[in-house]
Design a protein around this nucleic acid. Structure first.
Length: 277
DNA sequence: AGGCAGGCTTTTA
DNA sequence: TAAAAGCCTGCC
């Protein structure tokens, strides 16, 4: 179906934003997107014209939420003037089109653990291997198979050898511990829906293998806590180089996590271009 | 107590 | 060979 979306949305920028690892660019402008037990082909004809290979009901009941289309990211951007914060303003101009997807908390917990100390291709491979190993098989609109992300019980039941086969490295024990805690009901992700950002992060940090960075990513990408501000190596460089006198977290609340995404994407794209290796 | 160095699997560039 | 959306352990 054709959809006109006037608020910020750039599929290519979201695909490269580092928040989703089950998007695959199948050609110049078509993406195959897997989320929950669903799969859709999406393409962008212009700034505001999109094509989704699904029916209207599926779009309205699932993908509309997934893309967080009820939120205006333009409005969030416009809270910052170029005079007040030229660096952030410029980063937003460059990276306009990024949104914070509403992804599954459980999937984001495991995915965020997998991201530790790894680059994107390696992350994607581990996630696909886990999904093929114990996710459910489905068929997309082209008749091609895909696997949903594994349920906690299935992942918790994997042997050490099976986890190693997913190329998880030292993260295997973290994955197992997290999956077991969720599967056994010792940790309740759903309960965090009604917890504030700070409380969410501190509770997630109680899980073995989950530190502040991973917890912040789960809060932002899985629980849609838009004020959660993950600090990774790139953002630390931003804070050091661009905000030596401090960053205005209070003024930018409750959207610190959204602004973080623009700065993260901007710095990564620009350092790679300016430091060819 | 709280901060910090070292180690960790594997892949990628 | 270093770096990659880090975290745990042990030492001070």
């Amino acid at each position: 179906m054709e959809v006109r979306i006037t608020d910020d949305l750039d599929l290519g920028k979201i695909a490269e934003s580092g928040q989703c690892f089950r998007w695959k660019r199948v050609n110049q402008n078509i993406f195959r997107i897997i989320a929950a037990d669903k799969c859709v082909y999406a393409s962008q004809a212009s700034d505001d014209l999109f094509h989704f290979v699904c029916d209207e009901e599926s779009f309205n009941t699932f993908w509309y939420q997934y893309f967080d289309l009820a939120e205006s990211y333009q409005r969030i951007r416009e809270r910052i003037s170029p005079e007040a914060d030229p660096f952030l303003w410029n980063a937003m101009e460059q990276e306009k089109g990024i949104r914070i997807l509403r992804q599954d908390p459980w999937e984001m917990l495991i995915t965020s653990i997998v991201t530790q100390n790894r680059n994107i291709p390696a992350i994607q491979r581990s996630i696909e291997l886990m999904s093929e190993m114990c996710g459910d098989k489905h068929y997309d609109s082209c008749g091609a198979e895909y696997y949903s992300f594994p349920q906690p019980e299935r992942l918790a039941a994997l042997s050490e050898d099976q986890l190693n086969a997913c190329r998880l490295g030292y993260r295997s024990k973290y994955i197992h511990a997290a999956a077991a805690a969720i599967a056994d009901g010792k940790f309740d992700l759903k309960a965090l829906t009604h917890t504030d950002c700070e409380g969410t992060i501190s509770q997630l940090c109680e899980l073995y293998g989950v530190g502040t960075k991973v917890a912040s990513c789960v809060a932002l990408f899985g629980l849609h806590q838009l004020d959660s501000f993950p600090r990774d190596v790139w953002i630390n460089r931003v804070l050091e180089n661009e905000y030596p006198n401090g960053y205005p977290f209070t003024a930018y609340s409750p959207y610190n996590g959204v602004y973080q995404q623009y700065m993260f994407a901007f710095y990564r794209n620009h350092s790679r271009a300016s430091h060819p290796s």
